[in-house]
């Protein structure tokens, strides 16, 4: 249960970032957690190859979010501290929760299925994971923009940055959706199968963010309202990214063969 070690490292990093002004130490902990998590996830993917690992999304999400945190906040932390980047601990908190969900609610017990032995299934999965991570990060930035302590130009910058993340996330989500449809056609003979919840959730998220992009053209919506919309969307993304891939509660270190 090496995942538990990564959870411990992430949790330590989160609390250090939150309570103790040692940015380097928190970055180190998150780095260690990410390295372990990435190794575990890579091993799982490699294990299932050439098929697609089942219920892998939540594990992948934690890794991509970690990379986003390291690239965006790991070094900045060292220079400016947390006060300049309020979204950093929020994102860290989300990462800890997602990793905890993979450790305590695993659903990795299904054996891969043969129809996933095609490149489009992998594009569907991976593009979807990266897209969801971008969208969650956009939501985190919008949440930070909603905090009352920020100055106006900073709020605008945060919102613009959130929009950028969302636009690219939306692009990747579209790639994921279309790859899913292509895979669906090659495997099942039709571009959409309505009995598969995975496609329903991706389509639901895609329509939500399509709606957000349209909101940018409605002048009656203020930036605050749009930010709230983005935060709600990030919650929806987290729900649809995590819930289908979560099994029942399970204590780590038990049932090892």
């Amino acid at each position: 249960m090496i995942e538990t070690c990564s959870l411990a490292a992430y949790t330590a990093g989160f609390f250090i970032a939150l309570c103790w002004p040692r940015p380097f130490l928190s970055t180190l902990c998150i780095g260690i957690g990410t390295a372990i998590n990435f190794a575990v996830v890579l091993d799982r993917y490699n294990g299932a190859w050439p098929m697609m690992p089942m219920h892998f999304g939540i594990a992948g999400l934690s890794v991509v979010l970690s990379f986003i945190w390291i690239c965006n906040y790991g070094t900045i932390n060292r220079q400016n501290g947390l006060r300049q980047q309020p979204e950093s601990p929020i994102l860290l908190g989300i990462i800890v929760l997602v990793v905890a969900a993979t450790v305590f609610f695993p659903k990795d017990f299904y054996v891969p299925f043969l129809r996933s032995n095609v490149i489009w299934s992998h594009v569907f999965l991976l593009a979807g994971i990266v897209a969801k991570s971008f969208l969650v990060h956009g939501g985190v930035k919008a949440f930070a923009a909603l905090q009352g302590t920020q100055k106006k130009p900073k709020i605008a910058a945060l919102f613009n940055s959130a929009t950028n993340w969302i636009v690219y996330g939306y692009g990747l989500l579209t790639v994921s959706l279309f790859s899913g449809e292509l895979w669906c056609y090659l495997g099942w003979g039709t571009p959409v199968v309505w009995h598969d919840a995975a496609l329903t959730t991706v389509l639901s998220l895609w329509l939500y963010w399509t709606c957000f992009l349209h909101l940018l053209f409605i002048r009656s919506w203020s930036q605050k309202q749009r930010s709230r919309f983005v935060v709600a969307g990030a919650v929806l993304v987290l729900f649809f990214a995590c819930h289908p891939d979560m099994g029942p509660f399970r204590l780590p270190f038990q049932g090892q063969g």
Partner: peptide
């Protein structure tokens, strides 16, 4: 249905 051995053993405990 086929599942992983770990899961079977965990439920077995």
């Amino acid at each position: 249905i086929e599942i992983s051995m770990e899961r079977f053993l965990y439920s077995g405990t």
